[in-house]
């Protein structure tokens, strides 16, 4: 049961309408059409989804851990982007 030649695809599933697609795993298939069908057969055996995305794993560009400092730390000192930063008087705090 090897998969030589077959490409790796990442599978994303929307579990119900109104929710985001969520990454659930990967699979091997020859092309996107086949990947979509296998995603249906391999990842939704218990009605887990109403919509499926498949993406070639090779097409995903991922940030690296080394990038973390320059990517994410700069937002650590911007507490004013969060609602909790603003203290309002009780009568109007439910905002």
């Amino acid at each position: 049961m090897t998969t030589e030649n077959l490409e790796l695809f990442e599978v994303f599933i929307r579990s119900k309408r109104g929710l985001d697609h969520k990454h659930v795993g990967s699979l091997h298939a020859e092309d996107p059409a086949q990947a979509l069908e296998y995603a249906r057969d391999c990842y939704t055996r218990r009605s887990e989804g109403v919509s499926i995305w498949v993406v070639r794993s090779a097409d995903i560009v991922a940030s690296q851990e080394d990038d973390a400092e320059s990517f994410y730390d700069p937002s650590d000192d911007k507490p004013y982007r969060h609602a909790t930063y603003y203290q309002l008087p009780d009568p109007v705090n439910n905002m």
């Binding site: 090897t2 998969t3 795993g25 990967s26 091997h28 391999c42 055996r45």
Partner: peptide, 30 residues
């Protein structure tokens, strides 16, 4: 039938998790 098929599915999930470590399914099967 559903159960045995699930086991194959679990094999798939686990190969998929292992592949994130930089080894291919072919190498594992070999």
């Amino acid at each position: 039938l559903a159960k045995v098929q699930d086991e194959a599915g679990h094999g798939l999930y686990l190969y998929s998790a292992t592949e994130t470590l930089g080894i291919s399914r072919d190498e594992m099967i070999a």
